[in-house]
Design a binder for these strands. Structure first.
Length: 279
DNA sequence: GGGCCG
DNA sequence: GCCCA
């Protein structure tokens, strides 16, 4: 057990905002599986200090929770209007998480036409069937090899529907080296996205999520149905749109309007809508 | 624009 | 959401 002191970090917002699917809260403690290890974390509401029970060290969580991001500097960049001002003041401390590329890839492929409870269920079933048991009831996320070598019928137990075949294909692409995930760190935003979109089942939105959450591309601005509604409601008359604000136009607008940290802007708007609806 | 799997 | 018609 050890502590990590933090500033501008809210554990609840960060783990609850819908970017990660393997954490659950029980009273004051969040339990999750990350990097093949179990972690239990609670936050002192007064001091912001984290209490951590895990074999993973302080440096790991510093990276994982992006405590290296200068949040005040990021807010200064994205705080373009009263809507963002309200969101960042209300949910201050929400941070993006640096996810593991492989798990993030599969998680967001599963997110297609789904919802957070179901995505969580799918991933937990996937881990229980193909991962390693770390503690009773807690399993590591399966390796690409584990999923590539299974037959469709076994994977169907995980209730992933039409996503099943895509998951197997993606696992095979990773195992054969058809796509090398670590290489994507070296590519810029556009190229990394293009590479991901060569996989079946990955379009604009999913690719944006993956480059933003796993590959450090803060220009990712995923436009799902919620972000589309938010932007149309708050910013739909922006001259940039020249008419109807389509999803692709909204993505380009977000990158342009909020600048290089637009991924943070997207997450604050997204979380606010999930909790409050359109206001 | 409709089908896809729960 | 993605994909294909």
């Amino acid at each position: 057990m050890y502590t990590i002191s933090t500033e501008d970090f809210d554990l609840d917002y960060t783990l609850d905002c819908g970017q990660v699917f393997r954490w659950d809260k029980d009273v004051d403690w969040w339990t999750g599986v990350v990097n093949n290890a179990v972690a239990r974390i609670s936050q002192n509401p007064k001091t912001g200090e984290l209490l951590v029970d895990s074999s993973l060290d302080e440096d790991f969580f510093y990276q994982y929770f992006r405590l290296d991001d200068d949040l005040p500097a990021i807010f200064e960049q994205i705080n373009k209007d009263e809507h963002m001002d309200i969101a960042i003041n209300k949910y201050r401390g929400l941070r993006l998480i640096r996810q593991e590329p492989w798990e993030c890839l599969i998680s967001y492929m599963l997110a297609t036409a789904s919802n957070i409870p179901r995505i969580k269920k799918n991933i937990s079933m996937l881990s229980a069937m193909f991962g390693e048991e770390l503690e009773d009831g807690l399993y590591s996320f399966p390796k690409a090899e584990d999923l590539a070598s299974t037959c469709c019928d076994d994977l169907c137990e995980c209730k992933m529907g039409f996503r099943t075949a895509r998951i197997i294909k993606a696992a095979n692409a990773v195992v054969t080296g058809d796509i090398v995930l670590d290489e994507l760190f070296r590519l810029d935003y556009q190229d990394a996205k293009k590479e991901l979109m060569s996989l079946e089942g990955i379009g604009e939105k999913v690719a944006d999520c993956i480059v933003l959450f796993a590959f450090d591309k803060m220009e990712g601005f995923p436009v799902d149905t919620h972000v589309e509604k938010i932007v149309r409601t708050y910013y739909g008359d922006d001259p940039f749109f020249e008419g109807k604000a389509t999803k692709t136009k909204i993505g380009n607008w977000g990158r342009h309007y909020f600048g290089k940290y637009c991924g943070y802007a997207q997450q604050y708007l997204f979380y606010q809508k999930r909790l409050e609806g359109l206001i």
